[in-house]
């Protein structure tokens, strides 16, 4: 099956497509003067809060601002591009097979979910070292 061999191409393409869609829509939304509903009603920072700003900063090459807006997203974007690049090199230049999706260690996914939950909890603590994580 073609998808079984070429799936590493899908996540980066999907990520690029989604980013374009997301940024277009948020750009339009912010022109309508809308604010985050969760933040304005509860005062909490949700796991994605500051992500758009961080994305804009990365796109304009402003690393430190991006880190201060959403550190996890920047680290995640960096590792995502590294892994995607490795997988694409692996199936094209090295000519090896892509790893089978169901064989990927499920503990990695649980670990990722756990890191996001921890990050969300920590960035909502209004004390010095943790407030660095808040956007």
């Amino acid at each position: 099956m073609l998808l079984r061999r070429l799936w590493p191409l899908c996540p980066p393409l999907a990520a690029i497509g989604f980013s374009v869609f997301f940024l277009t829509l948020t750009h339009w939304l912010s022109s309508q003067n809308s604010h985050c509903l969760i933040h304005s009603s509860t005062g909490w920072h949700c796991p994605g809060c500051g992500g758009t700003r961080a994305f804009h900063d990365v796109a304009s090459g402003n690393g430190s601002d991006a880190l201060s807006h959403h550190a996890l997203l920047v680290v995640g974007m960096f590792s995502f591009s590294c892994i995607s690049l490795y997988l694409i090199i692996r199936i094209t230049i090295l000519g090896k097979q892509a790893p089978q999706l169901p064989n990927i260690y499920t503990s990695w996914i649980w670990l990722g979910g756990g890191i996001i939950i921890l990050f969300t909890l920590l960035r909502n603590i209004p004390a010095w070292p943790f407030s660095l994580l808040a956007p």
């Binding site: 997301f22 829509l25 939304l29 985050c36 969760i38 949700c46 796991p47 994605g48 809060c49 992500g51 999706l101 169901p102 990927i104 499920t106 996914i109 990722g112 979910g113 996001i116």
Partner: peptide, 17 residues
């Protein structure tokens, strides 16, 4: 189930979307 959790994590991360 892997696809479900990955999409679920993204769903929580992407706020309005």
């Amino acid at each position: 189930s892997i696809a479900s959790l990955v999409c679920g994590i993204l769903a929580v991360m992407t706020c309005y979307f």
